[in-house]
Design a protein around this nucleic acid. Structure first.
Length: 828
DNA sequence: AGCTCCCGATCTCAAGCTATATTGC
DNA sequence: CTGCACGAATCAAGCAATATAGCTTGAGATCGGGAGCT
């Protein structure tokens, strides 16, 4: 098979939002830019008419970020321009591209609306969808994704100036082309870096579905496909189960042992079942084809030693009578996962012979060139920690696939639900974790000849956390291994309890929430591991995330409690004095359903609705994440009345509400962390001189004035003043001379000097220029009129919402403009 | 006429419940 | 033969748990107005 050739496809057209400007003399670049990148060739821009000459193309052909929307836009645009050949993108002569709306909704991925594009003969691989499925991020724009994975950003060109660039001279058109090129190039780099093709080809081969299914369908199709494949081999027929519409309801899931919350300064050993649910299904031969009713068993006169009664009361035959299909499928998935884990080991150990060995093994398993190619590459670059993360994601995907075999049997609205299997699996699981807990606590006692009594402090589904009482990591590891071996012996193969790691120290907050240092060898900890707390959640603002992470670092790694307290205090003080970057205060939440379906008012939902009224084109849609900040408003206003678009806040100089952030965002998470460690945490952290800030009075409270409004502020103390002709509030009158000096010279505590701000802006500006890749041109992604006052250049209002620097530059700009105005307001 | 008392209306606040978002396994 | 309207069919891994904010409810506090008394 010929190697894949990957064609990156990107389309840029002016008037994205459905307004189509008049066709220009050269419609090509406005319609589409196709960028092909093959090996070491120089990337080049082709116009759409020459696409057909790119053939012969094999394999994955069309790949982009948000392919569907882009094709649709270009398609409409081509229609307006009367380019009849455009929709012929497939490899079948005269077959036209067809586009239709689809919605996909699942519990795992939420509801998403998208466009389905049929391009015959080409496999589409939409990076946006792949990203949304494989990685949990706060924003999925190409810009922010590239920043996250590639440390590189694209030059964002707002659609409103595309026409200008196109109608300008050859230089401006070149810039437009460069921009388009980058848009096509970035997805390719992401594709390579995250090894999407490699991973998806593997997943498609293991589960037996087309690559497109992996992006457009859910988990269950993979399981069904494997079932069908196996059933065919065995000449079995899968019934076309008519789900009778009956709400069979839900069944009992796994046990989560009660958490003994607290801060543990002794090592905690963790014992895990390896792939618990799959191994239960394998051990007890649970399958559709082994389930039997007791009556049938009697009728067929089956001997009881061939039957297995599960704790939930269902009966399955043993494998000597009939081996189940599901266990076989699981074996294959777990083998694939083992392979993936071995690759991870290569990355870890960087061993030459193992690499070669794997290449040889894999050559037998998968003859595909791409896999070989990637493996060689994998071997060469395996030391990169990023690579490790990608490989880890791959084995995780296989783990999830294995687990969804169990999920498939429990999906009551799926193709083939079988609650007998799924509830048997969970009942075995519940039994096993209780058994493990009991065994550990019974065996490791002072009476049993050990130094201390072991205590199980927590456990979730397939793991138990044990405090053996010893104080060295090494001793805990030895006891952990001993316990794992001992307990594994009491279970049927292939169920296996493994000793995995030691946490030391360990901060257990509640069920499913903990943090600790993760040790796999006794000399040095591997990393800090946090589960469920704010550091890993996406629904907090960055401020909370950073603050909590930093505190945990100080508390767990440095063991520096005063340092952590000091850090919290200074952060709170910064927040209350309004010295916080807006980008740190942006909260994002996913929009899971359409506006009407929400029963209660939530901040992000209401904001999305308001934004839709303002400008329907840029407002978030279902499935998008909505960023917002909380602004100052009347006392007692609900959070949903105080949420606002961060861009809107910056542009209109709306004050944010620091007290909201203090009370509703950072206080509780901090207390949860500090409480087990520090007595009187609340008093220490949240009260004291650092919480006294310069008070800024809120606008009048009467109903109509509920929303904050732009008002002049006193230069001295930033209090709002009613008469915008005045410079100072009545309090600060008499300090004019002093304040003016501060204002002009070095910035005072609450003021920044014009010189400072200009310097800051300059620095950020340079960074943005670097991100666009050239220092010799204006940055397109900014507002030129503010900085270059004597220049009559056209003012491009452009922004990139996801650039972390953007908010800071925007604020620096704003502050600088204000500082100038304030300087002018001194009328001596 | 002015003051007091009573009763209903309104406000406030806490407790409990529910919806929503997100994660762990 | 094509385009359009309409209806039918298809599709969606699982449960446990925490945190937050909105909503409801009920108790108590407060307020205001009218009746009655001095």
């Amino acid at each position: 098979m010929a190697p894949f050739r990957i064609l990156s496809f990107d389309i840029e057209c002016a008037g994205r939002k459905g307004h189509f400007p008049e066709p220009t003399h050269d419609p090509v670049i406005q319609v589409a830019n196709l960028v092909t990148l093959q090996g070491d060739d120089q990337p080049f821009v082709r116009n759409v008419m020459t696409l057909k000459s790119c053939s012969p193309i094999v394999g994955v052909d069309v790949m982009s970020f948000d392919t569907e929307k882009e094709v649709l836009l270009a398609w409409r645009r081509a229609e307006v321009l009367g380019i009849a050949e455009f929709p012929i993108l497939g490899r079948i002569r005269n077959s036209r591209v067809r586009i239709k709306d689809t919605t996909f909704s699942s519990r795992q991925y939420g509801m998403r609306e998208s466009k389905e594009v049929t391009i015959e003969g080409r496999v589409q691989f939409d990076l946006l969808q792949a990203m949304q499925r494989d990685y949990k991020l706060s924003s999925y724009s190409l810009n922010s994704v590239s920043a996250h994975f590639l440390n590189e950003q694209k030059e964002d060109v707002h659609h409103s100036i595309i026409s200008d660039l196109q109608n300008g001279n050859s230089e401006t058109r070149r810039r437009l082309a460069v921009y388009c090129l980058k848009d096509a190039y970035l997805p390719q780099r992401l594709l390579d870096k995250l090894m999407f093709i490699y991973n998806y080809v593997e997943m498609a081969r293991v589960t037996g579905v087309p690559i497109s299914f992996l992006l457009s369908r859910g988990q269950s199709i993979k399981v069904l496909s494997q079932l069908l494949r196996k059933a065919k081999q065995k000449s079995l027929v899968i019934p076309n189960a008519k789900h009778a519409g009956s709400e069979q309801g839900t069944y009992e899931g796994a046990t989560v042992l009660d958490a003994r919350a607290g801060f543990y300064e002794k090592p905690i050993a963790t014992l895990d079942f390896a792939s618990l649910y799959p191994s239960i299904m394998m051990a007890y031969n649970l399958c559709y084809c082994t389930l039997i009713t007791p009556e049938d068993a009697k009728k067929l006169n089956l001997p009881p030693e061939c039957l297995n009664k599960t704790p939930s009361g269902d009966t399955f035959v043993k494998s000597n009578l009939q081996k189940g299909i599901l266990p076989e499928i699981l074996e294959e998935l777990l083998t694939a996962r083992k392979r993936a884990k071995a690759d991870l080991k290569v990355a870890k150990l960087f061993l030459l012979f193992l690499g070669i060995f794997l290449v040889l093994v894999l050559r037998l398993v998968a003859m595909s060139c791409i896999i070989l190619h990637n493996l060689v590459q994998l071997y060469n670059e395996a030391k990169d920690p990023f690579e490790k993360a990608v490989l880890d994601g791959r084995q995780l995907a296989l783990k999830i696939s294995a687990n969804s075999v169990y999920g498939f049997t429990g999906a009551t609205i799926g193709q083939l639900p079988c609650l007998e299997i799924s509830s048997s699996v969970t009942s075995y699981g519940r039994q096993m974790i209780e058994h493990t807990k009991k065994l550990v606590e019974d065996k490791f006692t002072v009476l049993g000849g050990y130094e201390h009594n072991a205590e199980v402090i927590y456990g979730d589904t397939d793991s138990v956390m044990v405090q053996f009482g010893v104080s060295s990591v090494e001793a805990a590891m030895n006891l952990g291994r001993e316990a794992a071996d001992h307990i594994s012996g009491t279970f049927i193969k292939p169920i296996k309890l493994e000793f995995e790691k030691v946490y030391y120290p360990y901060l257990l907050i509640s069920k499913k929430r903990y943090a600790g240092l993760y040790w796999t060898n006794p000399d040095k900890f591997d990393k800090m591991d946090t589960k469920g707390i704010e550091t890993v959640r996406r629904d907090n603002c960055l401020l909370v995330k950073n603050l909590v992470t930093e505190c945990l670092n100080k508390l767990l790694i440095d063991r520096d409690i005063p340092g952590a307290v000091q850090y919290v205090k200074s952060t709170i003080s910064d927040l209350l004095m309004n010295r916080m970057d807006l980008s740190l205060l942006v909260i994002t939440k996913g929009l899971t359903k359409t506006g009407d379906d929400y029963e209660v008012k939530a901040a992000h939902v209401e904001l999305a609705e308001r934004m839709r009224k303002r400008d329907a084109a840029t407002a978030p849609n279902v499935g998008d994440r909505v960023p917002y900040v909380i602004i100052k408003a009347a006392k007692g206003a609900k959070a949903y009345e105080k949420s606002e678009d961060p861009i809107f806040v910056l542009e209109n100089n709306i004050p944010i509400d620091p007290h909201y952030y203090l009370e509703n965002q950072i206080s509780k998470p901090l207390l949860r962390i500090f409480e087990p460690i520090l007595k009187n945490a609340s008093r220490e952290l949240l009260q004291g001189s650092h919480t006294r800030s310069i008070s800024i009075s809120t606008p009048s409270n009467s109903g109509i004035m509920k929303f904050a409004k732009k008002q002049a502020t006193c230069i001295g103390c930033k209090a709002l003043i009613s008469n915008s002709d005045h410079t100072l509030c009545s309090h600060c009158k008499g300090r004019e001379a002093e304040l003016y000096c501060k204002s002009v010279a070095n910035g005072g505590r609450f003021l920044f000097s014009v010189a400072d701000l200009e310097q800051l802006f300059g620095r950020l500006w340079t960074q943005c220029q670097e991100c666009q890749g050239s220092l010799h041109q204006d940055v397109l992604c900014t507002r030129l009129d503010i900085t270059v006052s004597d220049d009559s250049k056209k003012c491009y209002i452009l922004f990139s919402r996801d650039c972390p620097i953007f908010y800071r530059r925007k604020k620096a700009q704003k502050d600088m403009a204000e500082a100038r105005v304030q300087l002018d307001r001194w009328s001596f």
